[in-house]
Amino acid sequence: MLTGKQKRYLRKEAHHLSPVFQVGKSGINKNMLDQIDETLEKRELIKVSVLQNNFEDKHDLADQIAKGTDALVVQIIGNIIVLYRESVEKNQIELP
Protein backbone atom coordinates (compact mmCIF):
# COMPACT_ATOMS: atom_id res chain seq x y z
CA MET A 1 0.00 0.00 0.00
CA LEU A 2 1.26 3.46 -0.87
CA THR A 3 1.27 6.40 1.49
CA GLY A 4 -0.03 9.80 0.44
CA LYS A 5 3.49 11.14 0.10
CA GLN A 6 4.49 8.23 -2.15
CA LYS A 7 1.39 8.69 -4.33
CA ARG A 8 2.14 12.40 -4.76
CA TYR A 9 5.71 11.55 -5.76
CA LEU A 10 4.56 8.92 -8.28
CA ARG A 11 1.94 11.28 -9.75
CA LYS A 12 4.69 13.86 -10.26
CA GLU A 13 6.91 11.27 -11.96
CA ALA A 14 4.04 10.07 -14.19
CA HIS A 15 2.99 13.53 -15.31
CA HIS A 16 5.25 13.62 -18.37
CA LEU A 17 4.58 10.00 -19.41
CA SER A 18 2.38 9.09 -22.36
CA PRO A 19 -0.09 6.19 -22.16
CA VAL A 20 1.55 2.93 -23.21
CA PHE A 21 -1.63 0.82 -23.53
CA GLN A 22 -5.19 1.47 -24.62
CA VAL A 23 -8.22 -0.44 -23.41
CA GLY A 24 -10.91 -0.49 -26.10
CA LYS A 25 -14.36 -1.98 -26.39
CA SER A 26 -13.03 -5.53 -26.20
CA GLY A 27 -11.82 -4.84 -22.64
CA ILE A 28 -8.93 -6.55 -20.90
CA ASN A 29 -7.68 -10.00 -21.88
CA LYS A 30 -4.88 -12.31 -20.74
CA ASN A 31 -2.50 -11.19 -23.51
CA MET A 32 -2.89 -7.53 -22.54
CA LEU A 33 -2.27 -8.33 -18.87
CA ASP A 34 0.92 -10.22 -19.81
CA GLN A 35 2.17 -7.26 -21.85
CA ILE A 36 1.35 -4.78 -19.06
CA ASP A 37 3.15 -7.08 -16.61
CA GLU A 38 6.31 -7.11 -18.76
CA THR A 39 6.19 -3.34 -19.23
CA LEU A 40 5.78 -2.74 -15.49
CA GLU A 41 8.85 -4.90 -14.86
CA LYS A 42 10.87 -2.70 -17.24
CA ARG A 43 9.45 0.75 -16.40
CA GLU A 44 7.79 0.43 -12.96
CA LEU A 45 5.40 3.33 -13.68
CA ILE A 46 3.03 3.39 -16.66
CA LYS A 47 -0.15 5.00 -17.91
CA VAL A 48 -3.06 3.10 -19.47
CA SER A 49 -5.66 4.94 -21.53
CA VAL A 50 -9.32 3.87 -21.52
CA LEU A 51 -10.92 4.65 -24.87
CA GLN A 52 -14.38 6.18 -25.04
CA ASN A 53 -15.86 3.15 -26.81
CA ASN A 54 -15.25 1.10 -23.63
CA PHE A 55 -18.36 1.28 -21.46
CA GLU A 56 -16.94 -0.46 -18.38
CA ASP A 57 -16.24 1.56 -15.24
CA LYS A 58 -12.67 2.91 -15.17
CA HIS A 59 -12.28 1.98 -11.51
CA ASP A 60 -13.28 -1.63 -12.25
CA LEU A 61 -10.81 -1.77 -15.15
CA ALA A 62 -8.05 -0.36 -12.93
CA ASP A 63 -8.78 -2.98 -10.27
CA GLN A 64 -8.74 -5.79 -12.85
CA ILE A 65 -5.38 -4.65 -14.23
CA ALA A 66 -3.92 -4.16 -10.75
CA LYS A 67 -5.00 -7.63 -9.59
CA GLY A 68 -3.82 -9.28 -12.82
CA THR A 69 -0.36 -7.70 -12.65
CA ASP A 70 0.16 -7.27 -8.86
CA ALA A 71 0.44 -3.51 -9.42
CA LEU A 72 -0.85 -0.58 -7.41
CA VAL A 73 -3.23 2.03 -8.80
CA VAL A 74 -1.62 5.41 -8.22
CA GLN A 75 -4.26 7.57 -9.86
CA ILE A 76 -7.28 7.55 -12.13
CA ILE A 77 -7.74 10.91 -13.78
CA GLY A 78 -10.09 11.32 -16.71
CA ASN A 79 -9.62 8.28 -18.91
CA ILE A 80 -6.04 7.64 -17.75
CA ILE A 81 -5.00 5.02 -15.20
CA VAL A 82 -1.55 5.33 -13.61
CA LEU A 83 -0.04 2.06 -12.34
CA TYR A 84 3.08 1.34 -10.29
CA ARG A 85 4.89 -1.86 -9.40
CA GLU A 86 8.40 -2.08 -8.01
CA SER A 87 10.69 -3.93 -10.40
CA VAL A 88 12.55 -6.99 -9.17
CA GLU A 89 15.58 -6.54 -11.44
CA LYS A 90 15.58 -2.89 -12.55
CA ASN A 91 14.56 -0.85 -9.52
CA GLN A 92 14.70 2.70 -10.90
CA ILE A 93 12.25 4.67 -8.75
CA GLU A 94 13.17 5.44 -5.14
CA LEU A 95 10.02 6.13 -3.14
CA PRO A 96 10.21 8.73 -0.36
Rank of each mutant, 00 (worst) to 15 (best):
Y84P: 04
L33Q: 02
E41T: 03
V73W: 05
S49N: 10
N29G: 03
N53S: 14
D63V: 05
I80R: 12
N29T: 01
Q35L: 15
K30F: 01
Q35P: 03
V48A: 05
L61K: 00
K90W: 13
K30D: 05
Q52A: 13
L72I: 10
Q64S: 11
Y84W: 08
A62G: 09
L33H: 01
A62R: 02
I81N: 08
K30S: 05
K30L: 03
E44Y: 10
N29K: 04
I76F: 07
T39C: 13
R43F: 08
K30N: 03
L61I: 09
I80L: 15
D70Q: 13
N79I: 01
S87C: 09
M32K: 02
A62T: 03
T39V: 13
L45G: 02
K90C: 10
I36L: 05
Q92K: 15
L40R: 11
I65K: 01
E89V: 14
V88R: 09
S87G: 10
A62K: 03
R43L: 13
M32F: 00
Q92W: 06
T69M: 09
S49F: 15
Q92F: 10
V48D: 06
M32D: 00
L51Y: 03
V74T: 04
Q52G: 12
G68W: 01
I77A: 13
V48Q: 06
L45V: 03
D37K: 14
E56S: 06
L51T: 07
L45I: 02
I81D: 07
N29Y: 02
N54A: 05
D34H: 11
E86V: 05
K58H: 12
I76E: 11
L72Y: 12
V82Y: 06
T69A: 08
Q64V: 11
L51F: 02
K42A: 15
N29P: 03
I93V: 01
I36R: 03
Q52F: 13
K90V: 12
N91W: 00
E44R: 10
L83V: 04
L61D: 00
I80P: 08
G78E: 10
H59G: 11
G68C: 02
Q75L: 13
V88C: 00
R43M: 10
V50D: 01
Q64Y: 07
E41I: 05
D70M: 12
D63L: 11
E89L: 15
M32N: 00
E86L: 05
I80M: 13
K67D: 08
T39S: 11
G78L: 11
I76G: 08
I93G: 02
I76S: 08
L40W: 13
I65T: 00
I93S: 01
K47E: 09
E89F: 15
D60F: 10
I93K: 01
E44V: 09
D60N: 13
V74R: 06
I36P: 02
K67A: 08
Q52E: 15
V88M: 05
K30Q: 06
N31F: 11
T39Q: 11
I28A: 03
H59S: 15
D37E: 14
G78F: 11
K90L: 14
N29H: 06
M32V: 00
L33N: 02
